[in-house]
Each structure stands twice: as C-alpha cells, then as structure tokens.
C-alpha cells in the first residue's frame, strides 16, 4: 500500500518536473541514481545478513522463547531479541500479540516492541555510514534505556 503511494507520488513528481524543466529533471535522476548506487552495496550486505538472522531467529522461535519468560529476566531477553532483529511491522505486531497470548507480561512485550522499532544492531553499520559512530552509539544506547522506561509506564497504564 505504502509502496504504491510512494511510487505514484515519485512518478507524478517526476512527470511534473519534466514538463517544467527537462535539464533539472535529468540532474535529479542522476543524483537519485548516484546516491542509491553508492549505498546499495552496504544495503545489500545488511539485507543478506537479516535474511540469515530471520531464518535462525524465526518468529515461531521468538514466541516460544519469550512467551513463557517473565519478570526482569524476560524483559532483558525481549530487549536483546528486539535490538538485534529487524522485522517488518506487519509481522512484528502480530508476533508481539502471540508473545502476549503465550503468557508474557505487558512490560516484556512493550520492551520488545520499543527496542524492535528504535534499536537496530544489524542496521548500525548503515547508520554509522550516514551519521558516524558517536551518533549511532548514543541514539541506539539511549533508545535501549528508554525502552525499559516506556515499558514501566506502559505496565502501569495498561492493565491486561
């Protein structure tokens, strides 16, 4: 759905730009191609690595693994799994729900969801390439700590 909107938007903008100024449109496309092809090798490596990770840390395994764990130990485990993996949202949320249904608490699931979205160990090499080591370390580190704070708040607000 998003893909379709993004493509329609990009193509319409391109056509509009082309009718206004042919040269500028050419420059834009050249720029787009240049920045895409210069980052593609790194992307390819990260995506291939994620392919391996998703195979060995499968959603089924995560549910089985996290579903029964509780307490701080469960939160800690959830945070590790959430930080490493990169799972698309449409898989991640149903996954979080089945972890919840399996008996994990709200706080464990909250840590899992927050770290999943905010902390990315596999994507860190890409982030370093764009932002540098210090920013990457700080953003991921602070987001990791915050995920526990968010979980504590969610644990108080949301009663299962």
């Amino acid at each position: 759905m998003f893909t379709l909107i993004a493509y329609i938007l990009a193509i319409s903008a391109l056509i509009f730009s082309f009718t206004k100024d042919k040269e500028k449109t050419k420059t834009s496309l050249a720029k787009a191609y240049k920045s895409f092809s210069s980052i593609l090798p790194d992307f390819a490596s990260v995506l291939a690595l994620v392919g391996i990770l998703l195979t060995y840390i499968s959603p089924q395994l995560i549910v089985k693994f996290l579903g029964e764990k509780s307490g701080f130990g469960g939160m800690f485990l959830s945070s590790i799994v959430g930080s490493i993996t990169l799972i698309p949202g449409f898989i991640a949320f149903p996954l979080a729900k089945s972890v919840l249904d399996r008996g994990a608490g709200i706080m464990q699931v909250a840590v899992f969801v927050s770290t999943l979205m905010m902390v990315g160990i596999v994507t860190a090499p890409l982030e370093i390439k764009y932002f540098g080591k210090k920013e990457t370390l700080l953003r991921n580190g602070l987001s990791y700590i915050y995920s526990f704070i968010a979980a504590l708040i969610l644990g108080m607000v949301v009663k299962p």
């Binding site: 998003f2 993004a6 938007l9 903008a13 420059t27 496309l29 787009a32 995506l47 994620v50």
Partner: peptide, 29 residues
C-alpha cells in the same frame, strides 16, 4: 535464508527507489 533475503530485497526495492527519486527532485528544486 534465500527466501528471507529475497523478500528483504523486495521490501527495500519497494521503498528506496521512490524515496531516492523524490529526494533527487527535492535537491534540485
């Protein structure tokens, strides 16, 4: 592994090309 890698690439190709095109246009305009 190959199945997951392939779908990762498909997801990336669904997002990045239009993003880069829009950014290229933004940059020039």
């Amino acid at each position: 592994i190959f199945h997951h890698t392939f779908s990762n690439f498909m997801e990336m190709l669904g997002i990045l090309p239009p993003v880069f095109i829009l950014l290229g246009l933004l940059d020039t305009w």
